[in-house]
Design a binder for these strands. Structure first.
Lengths: 99, 99
DNA sequence: TAAAAGTACTTTGTAATGCAAAGCTATAAA
DNA sequence: TTTATAGCTTTGCATTACAAAGTACTTTTA
């Protein structure tokens, strides 16, 4: 048997980061507050996980004003998409292609 | 959108425990040394993760002698199977049934 | 028969991680 | 002028991860 766990991406081990990525994989540009509500976590907690994904360039940020209110939105980068798909492939192999 | 991350099982967040469970889901009674080799981790590390799964009764242990050597084997319990399948369902929903 | 090796842990120590709560900055609305 | 909103950052504490070393018992080897 091949050791598939080595291909799992440490960045996606945490449930919140898994949630963030799975949201961003199917939604272009999601707002901070929207994401916070979807995941049902504190703003500080979300900020720290998002910034971890930002630091490794899996997520990009857009800051703008909507009307007169500040608004931050997030999207997954190309590298983030690849990394996440690779992770899902590894997960699938781990779970199904066992011999 | 429903918040699916809440249904993920904390016990399976770690990659090694995910590996242990996915091995035990398809193999009845796997030996300590065999598992250690499959996962390619230190014996101490394996022992601690296994004992965490034992403590919550997702894994059961059988100690015997094979010839004259001590031999420890592990299997997933009924509760462990259910918990793991529930976790996989949650994962799948998180990743695919997004709306 | 003494030393080395194997099996399966347990203990120790340290670093990393997770998270809530509080604090902060800036603007805007009441 | 107080309060609210948005989005963080900092703090502090508890938990987790993991390597390395230690342990106990048995067996093999020199």
């Amino acid at each position: 048997m091949k050791n598939y766990i080595q291909y799992l991406n440490k960045a996606f081990e945490n449930r919140i980061r898994l949630g963030i990525m799975s949201i961003l994989m199917v939604n272009d540009w999601v707002e901070f507050s929207e994401m916070k509500e979807m995941l049902d976590i504190t703003d500080g907690n979300l900020a720290s996980h998002i910034s971890a994904l930002e630091k490794i360039e899996y997520v990009e940020v857009k800051k703008q004003f909507v009307g007169k209110k500040p608004n931050t939105s997030y999207a997954v980068t190309k590298a983030g998409k690849k990394a996440f798909n690779d992770h899902l492939d590894a997960l699938e192999k781990l779970l199904k292609n066992r011999d």
